[in-house]
């Protein structure tokens, strides 16, 4: 790791001030620290957000869920109120990394990083979540912008995410056998605005909504509605782990499992 200057932010305003130039924001660090160790990332400064109390916590108020950006995967995976309101996101959080990683990694860090194989971006997109930063609120559809790219500008910090609990939600993930990142993960929801299906781990430009899956499930929200649906493989990732055709098949298979879970 190259030399770096560490700053511990006391508040979001403090963090915004400190995040200048080549500085990077540090939350759980479960991606950033390994990237710095391998010198893939070399920020001049790190601004630690994990000691800001305002960024932590989960609130469930009626059908509205708000999760502070600094909330860890472990906290999401074990929150009793959230488990009642939206078990799919609790289940998803419990699939990320391993127990020690979940103690540290945060939802804000995950979506700000927007790894193309991360789990949370699919949930945010399928839930039609609102991403709130220290400057604005924007829908998930406008937040994720491709591989490791988001709409965040310099000095902008994700402070929370919120969503309306849909009538039905489910997630299924096919983990890479070595890394356990999603080789394909599909999050489906059925809410008052219809069906949404978001895919992670498979798109060559990061998380995306599958029109084909959504169209089929809009007719009937059952796994059987997906029989014979063709998912195009043209814009899917192809690497040593899986061909794009295989990923297309996985999208369909995971979508079926996610729907079955949502209906269970």
């Amino acid at each position: 790791m190259y030399a770096v200057n560490y700053h511990r932010a006391k508040s979001v305003a403090d963090a915004a001030k400190l995040g200048k130039g080549d500085a990077k924001y540090l939350s759980g660090g479960m991606t950033l620290i390994p990237a710095m160790k391998t010198r893939l990332a070399a920020p001049s400064d790190l601004v630690d957000l994990t000691h800001i109390k305002d960024l932590k916590g989960i609130t469930v108020s009626g059908k509205t869920v708000t999760i502070g950006a600094g909330t860890t995967h472990y906290e999401v995976a074990t929150d009793a109120k959230l488990a009642k309101a939206c078990p799919a996101i609790v289940y998803l959080a419990g699939l990320i990394g391993d127990p020690a990683v979940r103690h540290r990694g945060t939802i804000g860090g995950s979506i700000a990083n927007n790894d193309p194989a991360a789990d949370y971006p699919a949930a945010m997109l399928a839930l039609g979540a609102t991403i709130t930063t220290n400057k604005r609120s924007l829908p998930a559809d406008k937040f994720f912008k491709g591989l490791f790219e988001t709409a965040l500008k310099d000095g902008e910090i994700v402070t929370s995410v919120s969503f309306t609990v849909p009538a039905k939600a489910g997630y299924a993930k096919f983990p890479n056998p070595a890394s356990r990142y999603a080789m394909t993960g599909v999050f489906v929801t059925k809410g008052k605005d219809g069906v949404r299906a978001a895919v992670t781990g498979a798109g060559d430009d990061g998380v995306f909504r599958s029109k084909e899956i959504e169209a089929a499930l809009s007719k009937k929200f059952e796994a059987s509605a997906l029989e014979g649906v063709k998912v195009p493989s043209g814009s899917l990732m192809e690497d040593m782990h899986a061909s794009s055709d295989y990923r297309a098949a996985l999208i369909l298979a995971m979508a079926k499992r996610a729907v079955a879970q949502a209906n269970a």
Binding site: Y6, G29, M30, I33, P34, L46, T50, P99, A100, R104
Partner: peptide, 12 residues
């Protein structure tokens, strides 16, 4: 809480 000390800065 269990955490990986190779993925944490001491200063954190």
């Amino acid at each position: 809480k269990a955490m990986k000390s190779c993925t944490l800065l001491a200063v954190q």
